[in-house]
């Protein structure tokens, strides 16, 4: 197999005496969905933040698309092709869905420091954004203000924005959170088709979605990865059953 797109090795992060990330290593390969699961407080968010650059690891290294990410700002990591969605929807509430996605497409299409032409004028930037909205099935709502969109639609906008970045990998932090079963099912179908556009590191509590989508699963408990492998292996793993699946079906 070719080199993984994302490779984290020996990540350690502690806050005072609490070791939130305890020598975690994981990889994300082209064309796969790698799910990261674990009970609340297992350190999933802390791990994600080290990959996005919001936190700096105490030791260990992260490689992305063949280059080390260490020392890069979160925006530089995004420019390198790390697309992400937030655990709690973080969009521009006063903008339309299209404007949100256009903003994400800017960096690939010449950057934000252009002062004269209207941003929504027809052109490649708008085309990329509209294609991304279409990809997530939201083109009919392009002109709606984000504040007026439903929770599920906002999730779709987030994913469209991540796609508009032209990502080499997607980091989705609980995309199903707060969605009704129907919406979650629709999103699952969407994500299933996305893995060939960009591999996905998926943090998710919805176990139906995880076992349906994931090619590999890593189980994080108390900052450590206690098991890693194919969904079937994870399902059978006694340590995982004890630590996690048993507690939170």
């Amino acid at each position: 197999m070719s080199e993984p797109v994302l490779k984290a090795g020996g990540l350690v992060k502690s806050f005072g005496a609490v070791v939130a990330t305890d020598s975690v290593s994981l990889t994300l390969n082209d064309g796969e969905i790698h799910a990261l699961i674990g009970p609340n407080g297992a350190g999933k968010s802390t791990l994600i933040k080290q990959i996005t650059g919001e936190l700096t690891q105490d030791s260990g290294s992260i490689e992305f698309a063949g280059k080390p990410l260490d020392g890069l700002t979160p925006q530089a990591r995004a420019r390198a092709g790390l697309g992400r969605s937030f655990q709690v929807s973080a969009l521009m509430p006063e903008m339309s869905a299209l404007q949100n996605v256009v903003l994400a497409a800017m960096v690939k299409e010449g950057g934000p420091y252009r002062f004269f032409r209207p941003v929504l004028a027809p052109g490649p930037l708008r085309d990329v954004a509209e294609a991304a909205l279409d990809r997530v099935g939201l083109s009919t709502r392009a002109g709606a203000r984000v504040a007026h969109l439903s929770h599920g639609e906002r999730r779709q906008v987030e994913i469209a924005a991540a796609l508009a970045l032209g990502p080499r990998a997607l980091l989705l932090d609980e995309p199903m959170a707060g969605m009704d079963p129907e919406g979650a099912a629709r999103l699952t179908t969407l994500l299933e088709g996305l893995r060939h556009e960009a591999p996905i590191l998926l943090v998710e509590h919805d176990m139906d979605a995880v076992f349906r989508l994931a090619d590999r699963i890593s189980v994080l408990v108390a900052g450590r990865i206690i098991a890693q492998g194919h969904p079937d292996e994870i399902r059978r793993d006694p340590a995982v059953r004890a630590a996690y699946l048993g507690d939170a079906p």
Partner: peptide, 20 residues
């Protein structure tokens, strides 16, 4: 303009701007 959209974004949700 593009810059204006980014500026409005910096006011509304800076984290989203960074993610872009």
């Amino acid at each position: 303009s593009r810059f204006g959209l980014a500026l409005h974004g910096a006011r509304q949700t800076p984290a989203r701007l960074v993610a872009a």
